[in-house]
Design a protein around this nucleic acid. Structure first.
Lengths: 202, 202
DNA sequence: ATTATTTTAGAACAAACGTACGATTTTTTA
DNA sequence: TAAAAAATCGTACGTTTGTTCTAAAATAAT
C-alpha cells in the first residue's frame, strides 16, 4: 500500500514534469527562449508560478534539460542505427534519415536545439556544446569515410547540417507530405558534394 | 555658406544614423534582438538613451530598417548580376555566389535576417515577408529552369537556402579561408540535387 | 488522531526594460 | 545679437521579468 501510494505520487510527479517539459518546449519554440516567460508556462500547464520552481531551479536549467534530453535522444538513436551498417554511403543515409526523421517528429525540441544554441551560458552551454561537437564528429567521420581525400570536412559537414536544420523554418507538418523525399534529396546532394569535393584541384 | 552648414549637419545626422545601424546590427547579431537593449546601443554608440529616439521611433522599427536595408541590398545585387546571364546553371552559380558573398561580408545583418525573422510583428513583419517571398521565388525559378520536370521546388530551394544561411553558425571570418570553396561546394550539391530530383520515379 | 512532511499557491521584490518627458545646450535664423 | 529651432541629455514611469518567501492545503507517518 505504501508502495502503491508512493508510486502514484512519484508517477504524478513524473507525469507533471513531462507536461512541463512539453509545454516549455512548445512555448520556447514558438516565442523563443527569452521571449517566453515562466508565467506563460504556468498558464499552459495549470501549475502555479511559484510551484514550477519545485520542478526546476531556474529558467536556464529548464532550457538545458530540454536541450540535453533532445540531443542525447537523437544521438542515441543515431548511434544505435549506425551499429548495424558498414557501408559508408549507407551510413550517411542512416545519419540523414535519423536526423531528419527525429527533427520532423520533435519539431519543438529540435527547433530549440537549432535556434537557441546561444541562449545557454556557463557550464550549461559547455556541456551541450560538448555533446554537439561529438554529434557533429559522427557525420564528419562518415564524410571522410566516403571520400578519404577530404582533409577538412568542415564545409561539407555544415552544409549537410544546414540543409537538415533549416527544416524548421519551412516545414509544415500539417501540409507537407512525408519525409522520404526530403531525406532522398538531402542524401543525393550530400553524396554528390562529398564525392566531388575539391575535384577541380586534381 | 548656409548650404555648407546644412550639408554638414545633414551629413552628421546620416553618419550618426549609420553608426547607430552598425552598432545595433552588431549587438542584435551578438545577443539576439530581444536580449539586446537600447541601453546597449546607447553605450556602444556614445549617443544618450533618450536621444536615440531621435533617430528611430521604437526598437522594432530599428530591426525593421536593418532587415529591410539588408534584404533589399542583397536582392538588388542579385538581380543586377543575373541580368547579364542567360544560362540556367550559370544563373544558379551567380545566385549562390552573390548570397554567400553578401553573407560573409555582412555577417551581422545576414545573421539577423536568418535568425530574427520571427521577431518582427504586424506590418513590419508583413513587409519583410513579402520581400523574402520574392527573393525566394528567384531561386525557385532558377531551379525549375534547370530541371523543368520539377513541379514543386520547395524542398530543393529551401535545402539550398539552408546550406547558405547556416553559414553564420560555423563560419569564422578570422580563421576560415575565402568563400570560393564554399560557393563551389554548395553549387555542386545544388546542381546535383536539382538534376536528380525525383529521378527514381521515372 | 495528531504530528511531521510534502505539495501547492499567491503575493512580494528587485532588476531591467522600452519609452516619454522636460530641461538644457547647441545651432540656425532674422 | 536676440529669437527660434534643433539637437541632446538625464530622469522618471509603468510594465514585465525571474525568482523568493510565506503560508496554507494535502498527504504521510507514528
Amino acid at each position: 500500500m505504501i508502495q502503491f501510494t508512493k508510486d502514484t505520487a512519484s508517477e504524478k510527479y513524473n507525469t507533471r514534469l513531462q507536461t512541463i517539459f512539453n509545454a516549455a518546449s512548445e512555448i520556447f519554440a514558438e516565442k523563443g527562449y527569452h521571449q517566453a516567460s515562466i508565467r506563460n508556462i504556468a498558464k499552459a500547464t495549470g501549475v502555479s508560478l511559484g510551484h514550477l520552481y519545485y520542478y526546476f531551479s531556474n529558467k536556464e536549467e529548464l532550457l538545458y534539460k530540454i536541450s540535453l534530453n533532445c540531443f542525447e535522444s537523437v544521438k542515441f538513436s543515431c548511434v544505435e542505427k549506425l551499429e548495424s551498417a558498414t557501408d559508408s554511403e549507407e551510413r550517411l543515409l542512416i545519419f540523414i534519415e535519423n536526423h531528419v526523421s527525429y527533427f520532423v517528429n520533435h519539431l519543438n525540441e529540435m527547433k530549440i536545439l537549432a535556434h537557441e544554441s546561444d541562449s545557454l551560458t556557463g557550464d550549461f552551454n559547455e556541456e551541450i556544446l560538448e555533446i554537439k561537437r561529438n554529434y557533429i564528429s559522427i557525420l564528419e567521420a562518415i564524410v571522410m569515410e566516403i571520400n578519404p581525400k577530404i582533409t577538412d570536412p568542415t564545409i561539407i559537414t555544415f552544409s549537410i547540417f544546414g540543409m537538415m536544420n533549416w527544416i524548421y523554418t519551412w516545414y509544415n507538418p500539417k501540409i507537407s507530405s512525408g519525409i522520404s523525399q526530403i531525406v532522398e534529396t538531402i542524401f543525393q546532394m550530400a553524396i554528390s558534394g562529398i564525392k566531388n569535393f575539391e575535384l577541380k584541384k586534381n
